[in-house]
């Protein structure tokens, strides 16, 4: 079994520092890896990135991150990426990494992702150049992650994004802004590789648990959603199940309880996790 810790949207800066670090002591006892799903900074500056690096460096487990829209605000995403990598944090963008962990080979592919919306209410590459560019950006990022995810030679595959792959985890956000919160392209990419888990952030007012149409469990790990330093999800025997997909799994996910916030050592078993959540 692999224990995946995750959090996002920490929005660190000189005025908000040490939010997570005090809770990371001993994380290796509870998790095998920590995923950061973007918006690590508030304004996307390199000064803030130093704070992020100090917060998450040398915590005893590998740290894998994607950037979020806030991390792009100052057009310093490349510098931010280099700084985080210098601190030992893997930053993914249309790329993947395989970690050899005690419980098996964990493959993580990631992208910031982008908006566009969800089937029935989504944008398309039509009309004005700005609209085409918007949707094309979203599609290209998702396609790159899909390719990286499928190429992973791993026992378990996790799709790590900032924007949401599904609408399930946006419940609580105003429906009008769903197209700015995620894109089904990301779910399609995760499903194309039959990923065991999709982790995202961005939707502060959303909810934690959802599932892709193909049955991949989706977790929104935005700090304002979790309200704790990180959540842990278990993959493998006794861990998160891949739903069978389709309407049945979506229905199960919709009626589930907060217990599916799989705490350390509280692995969900079978479909029960979804039934309870």
């Amino acid at each position: 079994m692999i224990r995946v810790a995750a959090v996002s949207d920490v929005h660190l800066g000189p005025d908000v520092t040490g939010t997570i670090r005090p809770h990371l002591a001993g994380i290796a006892d509870h998790a095998d890896v920590l995923l950061l799903a973007g918006d690590l900074t508030q304004h996307g500056t390199t000064d803030e990135t130093e704070i992020v690096a100090a917060e998450f460096r040398d915590i005893g487990v590998p740290v894998v991150a994607v950037l979020g829209n806030h991390d792009y605000q100052c057009d310093s995403q490349d510098a931010i990426t280099r700084m985080l990598q210098a601190a030992g944090i893997t930053v993914l963008e249309g790329s993947g990494i395989v970690l050899g962990l005690p419980g098996g080979r964990l493959g993580v592919a990631g992208t910031k992702g982008f908006g566009g919306g969800f089937p029935g209410r989504c944008g398309s590459e039509f009309g004005e150049p700005e609209m085409k560019a918007f949707v094309r950006h979203s599609r290209r990022l998702a396609d790159a992650m899909g390719t990286a995810l499928r190429d992973l030679d791993a026992d378990f595959r996790v799709a790590l994004t900032h924007y949401s792959p599904v609408a399930d985890t946006l419940a609580g956000e105003p429906p009008e802004i769903y197209p700015f919160l995620g894109s089904y392209f990301l779910a399609e990419a995760a499903d194309s590789a039959a990923a065991e888990l999709a982790v995202h952030g961005h939707a502060h007012a959303g909810q934690e648990c959802g599932v892709t149409p193909g049955g991949t469990p989706v977790r929104n790990v935005a700090l304002p959603v979790l309200r704790r330093a990180y959540a842990v999800y278990c993959l493998g025997p006794g861990g998160l199940p891949r739903a069978s997909g389709g309407a049945e799994s979506r229905r199960r996910s919709a009626g589930s309880s907060p217990l599916a916030r799989t705490g350390v050592g509280e692995p969900s078993s079978g479909n029960r996790a979804f039934a309870r959540r």
Partner: peptide, 14 residues
């Protein structure tokens, strides 16, 4: 202000 709680740390089987 968002209050950050500690992560859940109960052991397996607890």
């Amino acid at each position: 202000v968002i209050e950050v709680q500690p992560p859940r740390t109960q052991e397996a089987g607890a």
